[in-house]
Write a protein that binds this DNA or RNA. Sequence first.
DNA 1: ATAATATATGAATATCTGTTCATATATTCA
DNA 2: TGAATATATGAACAGATATTCATATATTAT
Lengths: 96, 96
Amino acid sequence: MKLTELKAIKLAELFSALSDTSRIRIIAMLMDGEKSVNALAQGLGMTDSAVSHQLRGLRQMHLVRARKAGRQVFYCLDDDHVAKLFHMGLDHVNHG
Amino acid sequence: MKLTELKAIKLAELFSALSDTSRIRIIAMLMDGEKSVNALAQGLGMTDSAVSHQLRGLRQMHLVRARKAGRQVFYCLDDDHVAKLFHMGLDHVNHG
DNA sequence: ATAATATATGAATATCTGTTCATATATTCA
DNA sequence: TGAATATATGAACAGATATTCATATATTAT
């Protein structure tokens, strides 16, 4: 298959965004609907800061989207593309 | 979504396997059919050693499979699951 | 057996990555 | 305005990772 160097880099970046346990768990939580940074941090046993740092990367990859409400920021999955990728990955892991 | 810690780790490992430009390009080449280690190295401008190291990781993740023929080893994608993940990633990158 | 070839592997190194800690920004409340 | 809260950001450090180089293993050919 033909693949420009740029696309190869973009693809690697996309999968990199999913290549960490913390981010995987963030995305899994967001599948139940939007959550604030703190709610995510609480749910995952991480500091707000660590979660915020990770969300930045996910945002840049367009995997999550932010909505500001007062002083909170609620994050949700950017589109169902993300969930599809996630589930397809799970299928592979579950040895499908 | 509920996700055991083990599954989260497995998922992250799977996507990690796709999180590097070299491996992405290896997989892209293998979409055209099986290739020897040296053929991959030539095609990618990498050393045989570097490619071999990466193939080991891809093998352990069950993303590629090896077939030995004489002193050569031919690699191919393990199943079409891999190609599907790859293409779905491309869709996202191509902003679908 | 010896040489040559294809791949694999281990150690070393340079780079990248995730978390922490301190601090900044923004918003609400008193 | 000033205190409190939610999130973001930068620097620094520890741990992971990809490549290189040297070497090992396995197979074929002479």
